[in-house]
Design a protein around this nucleic acid. Structure first.
Ligand SMILES: [Mn+2]
Ligand SMILES: [Mn+2]
Ligand SMILES: [Zn+2]
Ligand SMILES: [Zn+2]
Lengths: 136, 136
DNA sequence: AAGTTTATGCAACTGAGTTGCAAACTAATC
DNA sequence: GATTAGTTTGCAACTCAGTTGCATAAACTT
């Protein structure tokens, strides 16, 4: 898995076996997953190690986190070029039927005119509704 | 407190002593507060009663909830006319310095062009940064 | 190889949110 | 006013995501 390895080193993350496994799983996902989702993809695993792996990945901007209001933060891969600046961010969607959280990677978060003297560092925008698969 | 009383009955909430107290506290706040914030405004109180009070208020659209990513959901009063429809919603702001969460009641959530077949029921948009008071 | 740093695994804890149940209270009926 | 039925409140106990501490293991450094 030289590719996985590179993705890690490119983000200044030491490529351990554990981290490669986690990155591979994250790469496979079509939707954002939570820590406990991730835990269940292993037969035997330690929640804390996975927790710290996700923290490291997020810190190094390999993944981003989504607070979708379900009580469990979800994670999804960032694009190669992503620096998680406000301009880089996209809208997320939580489907009330299938309970899945998706990146709407093509929909940038619209810019907001904040009141004077407010400065901005980050935005979390989650739309809730029914996804196309569930809208038959 | 006939006014408080009316606000409750207008939303079809039976005006008990407890609920009037909670509504009064919520009315006083300049920022959104969490369940435990609310709990601390009482000398002696029961978290569960406050929890259920907030749930009732939210259900009846007297208040709305804000998931600001801090791990504790915040609550703030709705406007008299609010029905909590997507058009009624506004942006929220979380200050990374003072850790306060504000309603930016004057800033409506911009409308989003979702992919085909996605339907929308609700939006949570939280901007994080530094508020005007903290930006001296 | 010895020493140093970093990653992993296990146990134990925190804190938000939630449920069940019994007592208190309120409203409706007789 | 007493009886009943429905609603609200208070207490205990629980769930579950997230987190910390610490000991061991593995990876680099000299
Ligand atoms: Mn995303
Ligand atoms: Mn608000
Ligand atoms: Zn769906
Ligand atoms: Zn501030």
């Amino acid at each position: 898995m030289k590719d996985t390895d590179d993705k890690l080193t490119n983000r200044n993350i030491k490529p351990t076996a554990m981290r490669e496994l986690v990155l591979d799983i994250l790469t496979e996902q079509k939707m954002a997953i939570s820590l406990s989702d991730l835990e269940q993809k292993f037969h035997k695993s330690d929640k804390v190690t996975l927790y710290r792996t996700l923290k490291t990945f997020e810190e190094k901007k390999l993944i981003h986190s989504i607070d979708d209001g379900t009580g469990a933060v979800k994670y999804a891969l960032c694009k190669e070029s992503c620096q998680c600046h406000p301009e880089d961010l996209h809208v997320h969607f939580f489907c009330l039927k299938c309970q899945h959280t998706f990146c709407l990677s093509d929909i940038p978060i619209p810019s907001i005119n904040l009141p004077v003297n407010f400065s901005i560092e980050n935005i979390n925008m989650v739309v809730k509704g029914v996804c196309s698969s569930c809208n038959d």
